[in-house]
Design a protein around this nucleic acid. Structure first.
Lengths: 220, 220
DNA sequence: AAAAAAATTTAGATTAACCTAAAAATTGAT
DNA sequence: ATCAATTTTTAGGTTAATCTAAATTTTTTT
C-alpha cells in the first residue's frame, strides 16, 4: 500500500532530524517539527513501525529503516527538483519556493520525477545549495564550512544556507549575498561579534553572528 | 477557510455533470463519478451547501453557486495548464497525463498558476483540445461538431475528444489522428456504420462508430 | 539512590470522509 | 390516483490523524 502525505512528512522530518549519522530522534522533537502533540507522534510512530519504515522501541526514540530512508530521500529529491523548477523555469525567488515545494513533493509519479529531472538538466543542487539525491537514492552531503569557522583574511565561496526562512533569504538578497558569490572576512568586530565581509568585489558589510551561523561556504 | 482536496473534486465533478446549462446534478450521478456511495455524497453536499459553494435542497439535486463555480473553474484551469506542461515541456504523451494532472490540480498557490501560465505562453487549449479558462475564470466552450454529424465528402479539422481514456487516445495515435489534423469522410459503411476517413493526405482507414462519436471536429 | 522533573505513552475524544442498512421521498406505470 | 420501483436521506459505524488529560517511564538533580 501507498504512504500517505502525512506519513511521508514524518519520514522526511525524521530523516532531517537524525542527521547524517542516523541518530535516534525523540518524540518531542518530532512533535515540535510536525506542529503536533507528542501523543499524536506516538500514534504515528507505531503505525510507521508496523509498516517497517522505522525502527521504534517505546521510550527509545526512532530511526529510519532502509525502506523508510528510501521513501524519505525520494521525497527530498522531489522537493528539491521542484524548487529548481520554480526558480529556474518559473522565475520565483529562492525565498518563495519552500511552501509550494512542500505540496509538490507529494505528487506520486516516478515517471514524472525522472522527466522533470531531465527537463531541468539533472541539477545537483537546489536553489538553496542543498544537494539533490540521484534517481537511485544516493544523497551525499558536501562538507561545507559555516562562515563562523572561517579565519580573518580568508576568501570563501557561498554554497548554501542552514536556515531556509524567507526572511533570512530576503536579508541575504538585500546584502547581495547569492549562491556562488565570493566572501572575504575582513575582520571580526569585538563589540557584537559581527563580521566585516567583502561581498564579491563590491562593498564590505557588517554581517551579524546570527547570519554567519547560517551561511555555508567553501574554501577555494 | 480552505477547500479540501475532496471538496474541490466534488465541485469539479458537479461542474462537469451539470453541463454548460448548469442543470441540476443528482446524488446518484455524483456517487458514480466520485466512486463513492450515495449516502457519502449526501454528507458532502450538506457540507458544501453550508460553505455556500452549492445550491442544495433535499431530494432536489444540486447546482454550483457563483462561488462554487469559481472554485471549480480554477481547478479545471490548473488541471489543463499542468497537462500542457506535462506534454509540451516534459514530453509525456496525451494518453499519460490525466492522472498526474489530477494530483497537480490541487496545488494551491495562485502565484504558481499564473507563472505556469506565462511560462507555457498562455495556451488556450490543453493537449486534448479542451479550452483552458483564463485567469478571471472565463471558460468558453467552443462549439465543435461530433464526427458522426459530418456529411460524406466534407473535410474537417480534428479539434478534441470526448473520451479521455488512455486506451482511446492510444487508438487515435495508432490511427495517426492527432489534434489539428484534417479528416475527410469518404463514405459510411452500411455493414457496421464505420466511416472510411482519409487522415491528412495519408491513407484512408475505417473509423468505428464508437470512435467517431468521441471525436470533436470543426468545418473549415 | 531517592525524589523531582521531563519525556513518553495510554486512554478516551474529535473531525473529515467514507461505509451499510433502514427509512423516507419522489417518480413512474398501470 | 395508487402502488411499486427508484432515488435520496438518515442513523449509526469505521478509519486516519489529530487532540487533552492522566499514567508511566526515563532522566536529572541532589
Amino acid at each position: 500500500m501507498q504512504n500517505s502525505f502525512t506519513e511521508e512528512n514524518y519520514l522526511k522530518i525524521i530523516h532531517a532530524l537524525s542527521g547524517r549519522e542516523g541518530l535516534e530522534v525523540s518524540t518531542n522533537a518530532l512533535a515540535e517539527s510536525t506542529s503536533t502533540r507528542a501523543a499524536s507522534v506516538t500514534d504515528m510512530l507505531r503505525k510507521l513501525a508496523e509498516k517497517g519504515l522505522i525502527h521504534y522501541k517505546k521510550y527509545q526514540g526512532v530511526r529510519l529503516t532502509e525502506s523508510g530512508e528510501k521513501v524519505a530521500i525520494n521525497v527530498i529529491r522531489k522537493h528539491r527538483l521542484w524548487e529548481v523548477f520554480l526558480v529556474e523555469k518559473l522565475g520565483f525567488g529562492w525565498d518563495e519556493v519552500h511552501d509550494i515545494a512542500e505540496e509538490l513533493e507529494h505528487i506520486a509519479s516516478d515517471h514524472l520525477v525522472e522527466r522533470l529531472d531531465s527537463f531541468l538538466g539533472h541539477p545537483r543542487f537546489d536553489p538553496h545549495g542543498d544537494p539533490i539525491p540521484d534517481a537511485k537514492g544516493n544523497l551525499t552531503e558536501p562538507d561545507y564550512l559555516i562562515l563562523t569557522d572561517v579565519a580573518i583574511g580568508e576568501k570563501v565561496r557561498m554554497m548554501g544556507v542552514l536556515d531556509h526562512a524567507p526572511s533570512f533569504l530576503q536579508h541575504l538578497d538585500r546584502a547581495g549575498i547569492t549562491l556562488g558569490c565570493i566572501l572575504e572576512i575582513k575582520e571580526i568586530n569585538e563589540y557584537d561579534k559581527s563580521a566585516s565581509v567583502q561581498i564579491g568585489d563590491k562593498q564590505t558589510l557588517f554581517i551579524s553572528l546570527e547570519v554567519s551561523k547560517n551561511l555555508l561556504v567553501q574554501r577555494r
